[in-house]
């Protein structure tokens, strides 16, 4: 086995691999179930059981896999795989369960940005390949949305990396570096405000990334089948379903990795590696849950029920501007203190 990331403890390596490939999707699905349940409760319903996403996927695997006559066959079939593989790759680059990322290295923070695009792109490709006008319209809109939210996301990461780059000799565009130097430790009060604004931006971006079926904002979670997936069925649909879940989990993990990389074990002083790993892993899950609840579940329901309509209607301008304000604050903070 390759000695990735300089991890020489085979146990730890095994833990990370298990964490990336098994635990992350499992918890991703669990969180999707929790999200659906919570939304239902907030809408006055009982809602599906938390394990519903597992059942959905198992059922989809039992179903017939139809490829429509008019579709571009190879692309139609390949797109779900691309989406799933790209989402899974994301997990390898994002630190999970309080550990480092399996892969990673110079510039992985930028790489993640690109990897985030690929699943969306695969959705778009699948939509175009179905050559249904419905899916085509959906694909076009998805592309527009995708381009819009990648931009503020880039601003957030670049700001973080530039600030952190000033205090360390390590490459700042590494998630490991960012994790080692949490932004909150580096800046003064003004910078904290700036960082909070960046967190807010990232959370709004997460809504866009996770509510992947962009035209179906209210039902993106309960109904994975938006316009893009109209022609998909059976296994292919389940792959998209899974990719969607994993990507949402990865995205939220990214938020955690960028802004809340703290581990619990050093704070409470647990020295035993295994115990520390378990404690950190659980703490990570809690952090992910909190971010997911705030960004996906709560805002989604609240936006429909109450009204949060203060943000401008163009994602790209408003959110980018807000992100820029955040980075300027961090910049001023640097000058002042």
């Amino acid at each position: 086995m390759l000695n990735l990331l300089g991890i020489d403890n085979p146990l730890e390596l095994a833990v990370i691999i298990v964490g990336s490939f098994i635990l992350a999707p499992v918890f991703g699905m669990l969180y999707r179930g929790i999200d659906r349940k919570l939304v239902a409760r907030m809408q006055g319903r009982i809602g599906p059981p938390i394990i519903q996403p597992f059942r959905d996927i198992r059922k989809l695997l039992m179903k017939e896999n139809i490829i429509p006559d008019g579709a571009i066959q190879w692309l139609f079939t390949a797109a779900p795989f691309i989406a799933l593989i790209a989402s899974a790759l994301l997990l390898l680059y994002i630190p999970l369960f309080g550990r480092g990322a399996l892969l990673g290295g110079t510039g992985d923070a930028i790489l993640v940005l690109y990897l985030l695009i690929i699943p969306s792109l695969a959705f778009v490709l699948g939509g175009f390949a179905s050559s249904s006008p419905y899916a085509t319209v959906g694909a076009q809109r998805e592309m527009v949305l995708m381009m819009s939210y990648e931009f503020p996301l880039a601003v957030v990461i670049v700001t973080l990396a530039s600030r952190i780059g000033l205090v360390t000799n390590a490459n700042p565009f590494m998630l490991a570096t960012i994790a080692a130097n949490p932004i909150w430790n580096l800046v003064g009060p003004l910078g904290i405000v700036g960082a909070l604004i960046l967190v807010f931006t990232l959370i709004v971006v997460t809504i866009g990334e996770a509510a992947k079926v962009p035209f179906d904002i209210a039902e993106a979670e309960t109904e994975i089948a938006g316009g893009l997936l109209v022609e998909y069925s059976g296994r292919n649909l389940s792959l998209f379903y899974l990719a969607d879940i994993i990507k949402a989990f990865a995205m939220v993990s990214l938020v955690v990795a960028l802004f809340f990389p703290y581990n619990l074990s050093p704070l409470v002083g647990i020295g035993i590696p295994v115990l520390a790993g378990i404690v950190d892993g659980l703490f990570f899950l809690i952090k992910v849950f909190v971010v997911m609840f705030l960004s996906i579940t709560l805002i989604r329901t609240a936006m429909a029920r109450f009204k949060i309509s203060q943000v401008s209607y163009i994602y790209i301008i408003a959110m980018t501007l807000i992100a820029l304000v955040g980075s300027i604050l961090i910049g001023i903070d640097l000058l002042v203190f």
């Binding site: 319209v137 959906g138 962009p214 179906d216 904002i217 209210a218 936006m303 009204k307 949060i308 309509s309």
Partner: peptide, 22 residues
Amino acid sequence: KFLLTDKELRELSIEKTRKLKC
């Protein structure tokens, strides 16, 4: 000429709401 089901129309409509909202 192409056909839009009303579901697609609804998607377009929902998207407009979304644009207005955030």
